[in-house]
Computed example of a mutant assay.
Amino acid sequence: MNPSAKPLAQQAYELRQAIREQTHTGPTSGLATGTMQGNIVILPADWANEFLLYCQKNPVSCPLIGVSEIGDYRLPDLGKDIDMRHDVPEYYVYRDGIKVESRADIADLWRDDLVVFVLGCSFSFENALSQAGLTPRNITEDVNVSMYESSIPTTPAGRFFGNTVVTMRPYTPKDAIRAIQITTRFPKAHGAPLHFGTPEDIGIQDLSQPDFGDPVSVKDGEVPVFWACGVTPQVAVRNAKPPFCITHAPGKMLVTDLLDTDLAVL
């Protein structure tokens, strides 16, 4: 059976199983297309309310699509048999705001006081862009999306603060306008771009040197288009310095059973 002919929820479930078994360890862009992907932040309960407020104050960078109960690694509202200890291709572990390791599984780190936050991801609108003939460059070049820490500040909340991380996809000016129209329909996947054109205007000096992910080619006649990114909380975690935190590795997301269109404004 052609995998693309399988129901989307089944594709997402099978991808999560491959991630759990560590047969898929790479980026998730372009996989299980049509399902919503999520950025992950896992914090102790005594930090959770401040981070929730940070998300509420920064809904473009941090669009919440799911929050767990304290100590619960399951997220049944987001997908069949999701287990947050295993179902992300790569996790980053932070202690006192410093990334100390990356790993494929966090079962031995799980604690009864942890809360999982799942934030919408721009990978979720890439399917709509592709269907409109605007396939993102990171997909056509089979690399992770380019991500940069910009100079655009977020709104602080408690101990969390920092600049916005953005993803970049290049388009011709005409296609950029169409991409803006399409992505505006996906507020839970960061919505419309924050900026397009001169990268220096938002503090990015060299497109060939992303802070996260991989560089992509920008062809003659194209302009870089920048969307808010769910890696933004990793900058805020670095600044807030919680004693313990786990996130996804940039570009390696939780793939949910939700459809992109479930949270789209049509």
Rank of each mutant, 00 (worst) to 15 (best):
E126N: 03
A240Q: 09
D72C: 10
P233A: 09
K80S: 07
L134A: 01
K57N: 12
I42V: 06
V60A: 14
V218R: 03
T140D: 02
R103Y: 00
Y13C: 11
G203T: 04
A12P: 12
S122N: 12
A48T: 07
A45C: 09
G34W: 03
R178G: 01
Y94C: 01
T183Y: 02
A107K: 12
I182V: 03
P224D: 02
S61R: 11
Q131P: 12
T25Y: 06
F51S: 10
M36L: 14
N144A: 15
V231D: 04
G26K: 10
L207V: 10
E90N: 00
G66K: 02
S208L: 13
D214E: 12
S151K: 09
P199R: 04
G230K: 03
N239D: 08
D46I: 08
L53Q: 11
C55S: 05
S4K: 15
G221Q: 04
I98F: 00
L78A: 09
Q11L: 05
L263N: 03
N144K: 11
L15M: 10
K57A: 11
G162S: 09
K219R: 13
F117M: 03
E101R: 13
G162V: 08
I42L: 01
R20L: 09
R95A: 00
P7G: 10
A32K: 01
P173W: 01
